[in-house]
Nucleic acid binder design. Structure first.
Lengths: 163, 163
DNA sequence: GTAGCAAACTTGTCGCGACAACCATTCCCG
DNA sequence: CGGGAATGGTTGTCGCGACAAGTTTGCTAC
């Protein structure tokens, strides 16, 4: 098998992207841990639920919306449940499925945490980019996601953010 | 404090970027673990050393080149040393510093692992993008990195990939 | 020349995520 | 209508990364 190396422009883009992949999550995580006592992932679980009708979602659907595997989500929900931020229940119609509902405490939590998190995203991602670059970024991320998730199950979620 | 929410285009870009941040590292990591028995981060430590004159670097400089904290790097080097892929030593001129050298086994390891990893990067990042998008991505990542690393210590490393 | 301070790592502890195994429920099909 | 297969989640184990503390060496200033 021949080895297609990366040329200069490709390497340039990749090295920088890799640095962002390495550094950005830590910054977002640190801010939320410090100011809200939440993991970035925990925050997104709560935030996703808060935007869902009835503040309730099935585990599997929630895992799509948050780009997580089911085991990971299950563990996180267990922790959030222990802190009283969400609650699990199931319906008689299909007792295999588990539903997760955001509690009032959870709603309050995400409401308090949101401004700081949004400000961080603004500062580190939105503000440094021009509007054109934001559109470019959306298109670029879209193209990459198409490869990461060929089935398109996850990607389909994002279409709701299209104009 | 007022809360500047994200408008549609901003949200669109951010949600997609976040998905990439969540999914891409796992894919790269899984490929390297499976095919080479290396973490993506372990691979980059070895790869960075392999491109350094003398295949040797100080811990601190290596941590810059790989976007890692020193404790993290120290743990990783300990593991790599245990597997015989690198070796630590210090010089009398300043015995606080630790130098890390890639062994022949380490060199062979990275040589064997590189093609598969590069192919993965090609498939998931380079190939889905047009040349224009690659340039855009480099500029976008650059702008974000400037905020992530205001001191510019890390960023300075990347200028060597500029034309 | 020695007292403090800074630099450069290392080590210890804890928590989260990946993977694999497992369990319960429902569907399908002869 | 009974016996797999498939769906939907949960649980257990292990390893890595973050953070905080500790250690050694070198620098500086009086």
């Amino acid at each position: 098998m021949d080895t297609p190396w990366l040329d200069r422009p490709q390497l340039r883009a990749w090295v920088r992207l890799r640095a962002v992949l390495e550094l950005l999550p830590g910054v977002l995580d640190a801010q939320l841990r410090r100011d809200a006592g939440l993991t970035e992932f925990e925050y997104y679980v709560l935030a996703t639920l808060s935007e869902t009708p009835g503040r309730t979602s099935r585990m599997t659907e929630l895992s799509w919306g948050t780009n997580a595997t089911l085991p990971r989500l299950s563990h996180v929900v267990t922790r959030l449940e222990g802190r009283g931020l969400v609650e699990r229940f199931s319906l008689p119609e299909d007792r295999r499925t588990t539903h997760v509902r955001l509690t009032d405490d959870g709603w309050e939590k995400v409401r308090q945490a949101a401004p700081g998190h949004v400000a961080t995203v603004h500062h580190h991602v939105v503000d440094p980019l021009t509007p054109e670059q934001l559109d470019q970024l959306a298109a670029i991320a879209d193209a990459i996601l198409a490869r990461l998730d060929p089935s398109g199950t996850t990607a389909a979620i994002y279409t709701r953010y299209d104009e």
